[in-house]
């Protein structure tokens, strides 16, 4: 803003300020939602199979896993962190969840608790690496990604965990009144985390740390403890997501989730989460997750190879982050 910030200038600017303030969050969410609708319509015309009940169910379940793990990613991104370990941790959680059912006769619920516990431990590890060992999140979680993937191959001998009872599929393929069970879980998770972030002190501190860590520290927030808590909670969701993914294919797959981090980071940044920290909302992330799931699903229906899908997701990440920077510059050029 120019030096003329005195009384005269403010009156006119006030309305547009109010508008920007409301809108700045919503812009990326609106853009993503528009893209989602356009893609949805395009796929309806492009593939006769797209709008079938089977395929929509499939998209729902696929969105669910991406959305739950992207929700976790969003919390971490808001703190100005990043979690590259989500894919291997989800695989580890899914595999161990499957193993305790097959080998120890655990119920599905007990196995889900195990998977969530695995995720929480991995999150705790990430959190301690970042806060106590002071390793930057990118590197800390890169290490966890490698360690996790290694462990899951060691534990399984690189062979999938099969021979599970049909009931194992409930989380991933079950339904309530025609709605995939996984979608119901996702809605609960999304609403819960959105509430946590927007209405509680925990959420306030999460944004504050990502916005200005030193300000948060000087305000008396115990940033180490709090940041670790965010990673643990993210891990819990990743464990849950991994379990749902395993349940969908009725087996524990050691190579599940390779490059999943790209999908969920893309979902989060498409929805408006900023890699510079301090910004991000779950609504946006859910829209982003849906969009990514549609891209994946559409590519399969249209017979576009997985390699092209990788290219598309990469370009989407570039575009979303570029847009975020552009938006920030515009906002700050006023200040």
């Amino acid at each position: 803003m120019s030096s003329a910030e005195a009384t005269a200038g403010t009156q006119r600017g006030e309305l547009s300020d109010w508008f920007r303030e409301r809108i700045s969050h919503a812009v990326s969410e609106f853009t993503a939602a528009t893209a989602l609708v356009v893609l949805f319509i395009a796929l309806t015309f492009a593939s006769p199979y797209f709008l079938t009940a089977d395929n929509l169910f499939n998209i729902g379940a696929q969105t669910a896993v991406i959305a739950i793990i992207a929700t976790a990613q969003t919390m971490v991104i808001i703190t100005k962190g990043i979690d590259l370990s989500v894919g291997s941790v989800a695989a580890l959680a899914g595999v161990l969840g499957a193993m305790v059912v097959r080998d120890l006769g655990f119920s599905l619920w007990a196995a889900t608790a195990v998977a969530i516990g695995v995720g929480a431990l991995a999150g705790l590890l990430n959190g301690l690496l970042v806060t106590v060992a002071r390793i930057p999140p990118f590197i800390a979680t890169l290490g966890t990604m490698s360690v996790g993937r290694g462990l899951v191959f060691i534990i399984t001998g690189a062979v999938g965990v099969y021979g599970l009872p049909r009931s194992f599929q409930l989380l991933g393929n079950g339904q309530i009144l025609g709605i995939p069970f996984a979608v119901v879980i996702t809605v609960l998770v999304a609403v819960g985390v959105a509430f946590l972030l927007s209405q509680t002190r925990f959420g306030q501190y999460t944004y504050a740390m990502g916005s200005n860590l030193e300000a948060a520290r000087r305000s008396g927030i115990r940033v180490g403890r709090h940041l670790t808590g965010v990673y643990v909670l993210a891990g819990v969701l990743v464990g849950l997501g991994g379990m749902i993914a395993a349940s969908r294919v009725n087996s524990g797959q050691p190579n599940y989730g390779i490059s999943l981090e790209l999908d969920v980071i893309a979902a989060a940044v498409i929805g408006g989460a900023s890699l510079f920290g301090g910004q991000g909302r779950i609504v946006g992330t859910i829209i982003g997750a849906f969009l990514i799931a549609l891209v994946r699903n559409g590519a399969v229906l249209l017979d576009i190879s997985i390699h092209y899908q990788q290219v598309i997701v990469g370009v989407i990440i570039w575009a979303a982050v570029y847009f975020d920077q552009y938006r920030r510059r515009r906002l700050e050029s006023r200040g």
Binding site: Q204, Y207, A208, S211, E214, A215, R218, S219, G277, G278
Partner: peptide
């Protein structure tokens, strides 16, 4: 009030 203003810009 610190010289390097300690405020959280996004809040």
């Amino acid at each position: 009030v610190y010289q390097d203003l300690a405020v959280a810009d996004d809040l």
